Simulated assay, not measured.
Amino acid sequence: MRIAIAGAGAVGRSIAQELVADGHQVMLIERDRAHFEPHTVEQAEWVQADACELSSLEDAGLQLCDVVIAATGDDKVNLVVSLLAKTEFAVRRVVARINVPSNEWLFTKAWGVDVAVSTPRILSALVEEAVTVGDVVRLVTLQQGQANLVEITLTEDTPLAGTPVRDLALPRDAALVTILRGGRVIVPTPDDALEGGDELLFVAAQDVEREIRTALGY
């Protein structure tokens, strides 16, 4: 897969290194000479250009990319890159980094964004997930807000211990997709029973998150 990354700062380079290691063709586009360091990801193609300029993207061959990742530290730039990638180059998948949480509402399909990744939101969710028991923690927003990946950790003395998954009175727009138990990752079947301390991962519509909590007795 050919992937273009706009922004070769610490985040862009880290993403590039991971993708190269997985066997993808990666092109890093960077305007700032201070961040133009091809030796840091030698297997990637480096282009020194302004990713907000249509002609620069044409010269770089963005139309040949399967995925574009807008990973700069400037939300305005990431939005412009996303819009150009989708509308001018028909890139199939556009992923954009959100730096300022208050800008999250802008990162939608109207701006060409297929997947928006908010670093502050992810970090706060991970902190909540680490310290919160018995409450719903939203980890990732999917499909532009239509659904979320949420987590809830059962208390050790939960009355649901021994209850099979099929007996959970979950709301209609919620699905239990994974149970994390110790070092195990369990894809639940109707006959699997819950245990105290289980971390439950759901894909759910935002408006039923409270109902999930109620169904689990919290």
Score class of each variant (00 low, 15 high):
1 M>L: 03
4 A>Q: 02
6 A>T: 13
6 A>P: 11
6 A>N: 11
7 G>K: 03
7 G>H: 06
9 G>A: 05
9 G>L: 07
9 G>R: 05
12 G>N: 09
13 R>Q: 14
19 L>P: 12
21 A>L: 07
22 D>G: 13
23 G>Y: 01
25 Q>Y: 03
25 Q>C: 01
25 Q>M: 03
27 M>W: 10
29 I>G: 05
36 F>T: 12
37 E>G: 03
39 H>W: 07
43 Q>G: 02
43 Q>K: 07
46 W>F: 10
46 W>I: 09
48 Q>Y: 04
49 A>L: 08
50 D>K: 03
51 A>Q: 03
51 A>R: 01
53 E>F: 11
54 L>P: 01
57 L>F: 07
57 L>W: 04
64 L>T: 08
64 L>Y: 06
66 D>C: 01
67 V>T: 15
72 T>A: 08
72 T>M: 07
73 G>H: 00
73 G>E: 02
76 K>W: 07
78 N>T: 13
78 N>P: 15
79 L>P: 06
82 S>L: 10
82 S>K: 09
84 L>P: 05
85 A>G: 10
86 K>M: 09
86 K>P: 04
92 R>I: 01
93 R>I: 10
96 A>S: 15
96 A>M: 09
97 R>T: 01
98 I>C: 02
99 N>E: 05
100 V>C: 05
102 S>W: 01
102 S>R: 03
103 N>G: 06
105 W>F: 15
107 F>D: 12
107 F>C: 09
107 F>L: 09
109 K>T: 15
110 A>F: 12
113 V>F: 04
113 V>C: 07
115 V>P: 00
116 A>P: 13
117 V>P: 03
117 V>A: 13
119 T>K: 02
120 P>A: 04
120 P>H: 04
123 L>Q: 06
123 L>C: 04
124 S>I: 07
125 A>H: 03
126 L>V: 14
129 E>L: 04
129 E>P: 00
129 E>M: 05
130 A>D: 09
131 V>I: 14
134 G>A: 11
135 D>W: 11
135 D>L: 10
136 V>W: 02
136 V>C: 08
138 R>W: 00
140 V>E: 15
141 T>E: 15
141 T>A: 05
143 Q>K: 14
144 Q>E: 15
145 G>C: 02
145 G>I: 10
146 Q>A: 15
147 A>W: 12
147 A>C: 05
148 N>L: 08
151 E>Q: 14
152 I>K: 14
154 L>W: 12
155 T>K: 09
158 T>H: 06
159 P>W: 01
162 G>I: 11
163 T>W: 05
163 T>G: 01
164 P>V: 01
165 V>S: 04
167 D>Q: 13
167 D>R: 09
167 D>Y: 05
169 A>W: 02
170 L>H: 13
170 L>S: 12
171 P>N: 11
172 R>S: 15
174 A>T: 08
174 A>K: 02
174 A>R: 05
175 A>M: 15
178 T>N: 03
182 G>C: 11
183 G>E: 13
184 R>Q: 14
186 I>G: 04
187 V>D: 03
188 P>L: 06
189 T>V: 11
193 A>M: 14
195 E>C: 02
195 E>F: 01
197 G>P: 02
199 E>H: 14
199 E>F: 00
199 E>I: 10
200 L>N: 11
200 L>Y: 13
201 L>G: 08
202 F>T: 12
203 V>M: 13
205 A>M: 07
206 Q>F: 00
207 D>F: 03
215 A>P: 06
215 A>N: 05
217 G>H: 14
